[in-house]
């Protein structure tokens, strides 16, 4: 490549799985070093560019789980296997893997927040990232909006997992209620011993992290991931700036002690 950090390079789409009406997971050929929680700038010529989290990866493949909400994400939805997607990255700070290794870990993901934590959970359940314990709480709006149903089936076997939808719904026998209610029910004997990750919509993160603080988890042990409008991913365009923090380079994953001071 040219050494130009803005230069997108083509990657071939090898698989597309539909997750819901508007969400799909796309696998592309790519062998790059990355960390769960990082993101790529994905683009299509003529349409534009957007930041998308890594929703899983392996030695020579990479996945994105995309919600078709607008021009670019809509156009990506209409791509087919064999076609090219353009990407650049990975960008940003991912999850603090060294701190998480061998910890008692709690991961809370709301809605599309499930995408960035998925590679982390996959590595833990696969044993490549060993932890002492893992509790996983994932919440979705309704049963139709549940992402990664296949993975969730296998995660359920391998860790302490809660899958909840916001409200009771016909044909749903599982848990209901917001993730915060489920956090409240957790019994943490030694809260200092836990590392906590919360990823989801801003309001959910605000209340969920507050619950953990009430449970006594030290602020330094809580990690969140922020989404802001981003144009560059390189700390240049200024869109993602909050206070003196640039989410694209200082985040998106941040410690709560830092994140909680940020006011847009």
């Amino acid at each position: 490549m040219s050494g130009n950090p803005y230069q997108p390079f083509p990657v071939k789409i090898t698989k597309i799985v539909s997750e819901s009406d508007v969400e799909f997971t796309m696998t592309v050929d790519a062998s790059l070093d990355m960390v769960p929680g990082q993101f790529f700038q994905i683009s299509l010529p003529k349409i534009g560019e957007a930041p998308i989290s890594i929703s899983n990866y392996g030695k020579n493949w990479l996945q994105f789980t995309i919600r078709a909400v607008g021009r670019l994400t809509g156009a990506i939805q209409s791509l087919r296997v064999g076609e090219n997607l353009f990407i650049r990255g990975p960008y940003g700070h991912g999850f603090p893997v060294e701190k998480l290794a061998n910890s008692n870990l709690i991961i809370v993901a709301g809605g599309s927040g499930a995408a960035p934590v998925r590679p982390l959970v996959s590595q833990i359940v696969a044993g490549t990232l060993p932890v002492k314990s893992l509790k996983l709480i994932t919440g979705f709006k309704s049963k139709e909006s549940i992402l990664f149903t296949e993975d969730i089936q296998s995660w359920k076997q391998k860790c302490d997992m809660t899958l909840t939808i916001d409200k009771p719904q016909e044909g749903w026998n599982g848990d209901t209620g917001l993730v915060t209610e489920h956090i409240r029910r957790l019994k943490l004997d030694l809260p200092d011993d836990y590392q906590v990750i919360v990823v989801g919509p801003p309001v959910m993160m605000k209340f969920a992290t507050a619950e953990f603080r009430l449970l006594g988890v030290p602020v330094d042990n809580v990690w969140v991931s922020f989404e802001r409008l981003m144009s560059c991913g390189l700390g240049k365009c200024g869109h993602c700036k909050i206070d003196s923090t640039y989410i694209c380079v200082d985040g998106p994953v941040m410690n709560l002690s830092h994140a909680s001071t940020l006011i847009d």
Binding site: S43, P45, K46, I47, G48, E49, S231, C232, K236, C237, G238, H239
Partner: peptide, 23 residues
């Protein structure tokens, strides 16, 4: 601050430019 936008040439819908403009 800037934003990035794509535009394509009306005469050739395959080709265009990625531009960055002040925001």
């Amino acid at each position: 601050c800037f934003s990035t936008v794509d535009l394509f040439y009306a005469d050739s819908r395959q080709c265009g430019e990625r531009r960055r403009v002040w925001d």
